[in-house]
Computed example of a mutant assay.
Amino acid sequence: MIITDTHTHLYSEAFDEDRAEMMQRTLEAKVSRLFIPAIDSTYTASMLQLEKDYPENVFLMMGLHPTHVKDNYKEELAHVVEMLDKHKFYAVGEIGIDLYWDKSTLAIQQDAFRYQIQLAKQHKLPIVIHCREAFDEIFEILEEEKSEDLYGIFHCFTGTLEQAHQAISYNMKLGIGGVATFKNGKIDQFLNEIDLKHIVLETDSPYLAPKPFRGKRNESSYILKVVEKLSGIYNTSEEKIADITTDNSKAVFGV
């Protein structure tokens, strides 16, 4: 059984004290494919080091996270361009719009999102979308940019069934993680109406730990709790959940 975590911030400061031990637990849990989203240029060196340390397991993305779209965002986007030109990445991400923390930056978030979608198309890469309190704004841009070469993952999907179908219509897989195990997470109530071929697994570690770890630091080995939950939702074996979602991740990332 091979399990793929399509979204984990392994370079986070939250792991600075015990990263090697955390990675050992992850690999022992058969979570052997780990896709690493970017936040901004300050994390690039740490990401490259992770790839060097775990070349068989770690696959990097490059992008500017919407909560880090600030006054200097054009400099940050120039860094994204430079890195995409000189290093192998497997997606442009995580990118998108976040109106939970700061609505005042909406216009520049939209600009950065559009620009990075176009970069992904140029490099023939998928996108990995961060959406928080911004479904309408995200869908508006996806509608503008939709094409055969626009595809990817709607990371940490927490929308409604209707929004799930809309995301899928833009060639997006749904990234499902710890929220599916929450009592008030809601997505577990309709996930069985979404074909497994549209689902990939993720942790978003160190955030959004699944039950029974909710409120604690998340790590990639905890994805086993998500596999267990989806096994119940889809009434199928954990092995089948792992196999199908790993195949789906290969279809997106090309590896």
Results as ranks from 00 to 15, higher is better:
44 T>M: 13
81 V>K: 15
199 I>N: 02
58 V>M: 12
26 T>W: 01
71 D>E: 15
67 T>A: 14
156 C>Q: 00
226 V>R: 02
205 S>H: 13
14 A>F: 07
177 G>R: 05
238 E>V: 07
122 Q>F: 09
30 K>V: 02
63 G>K: 00
181 T>Y: 06
112 A>M: 04
41 S>V: 04
161 L>E: 11
20 A>R: 10
174 L>N: 11
152 G>Q: 09
133 E>V: 07
53 D>N: 14
213 F>N: 07
240 K>E: 06
35 F>P: 05
166 Q>H: 14
38 A>T: 00
91 A>I: 00
207 Y>H: 05
114 R>N: 08
83 M>Y: 15
205 S>W: 14
63 G>D: 05
53 D>S: 13
67 T>D: 11
95 I>F: 06
5 D>Q: 05
175 G>W: 03
186 K>P: 01
179 V>Q: 05
26 T>V: 06
220 S>T: 04
13 E>Q: 08
166 Q>E: 15
44 T>A: 09
94 E>T: 02
136 D>Y: 09
48 L>P: 05
142 L>A: 06
127 I>Q: 01
160 T>V: 08
8 T>P: 03
216 K>E: 15
19 R>K: 15
3 I>T: 02
173 K>C: 11
235 N>T: 02
18 D>E: 13
219 E>G: 09
78 A>M: 06
202 E>D: 02
246 T>K: 03
113 F>N: 04
164 A>R: 09
74 K>C: 02
143 E>Q: 15
59 F>A: 03
116 Q>K: 02
236 T>Y: 00
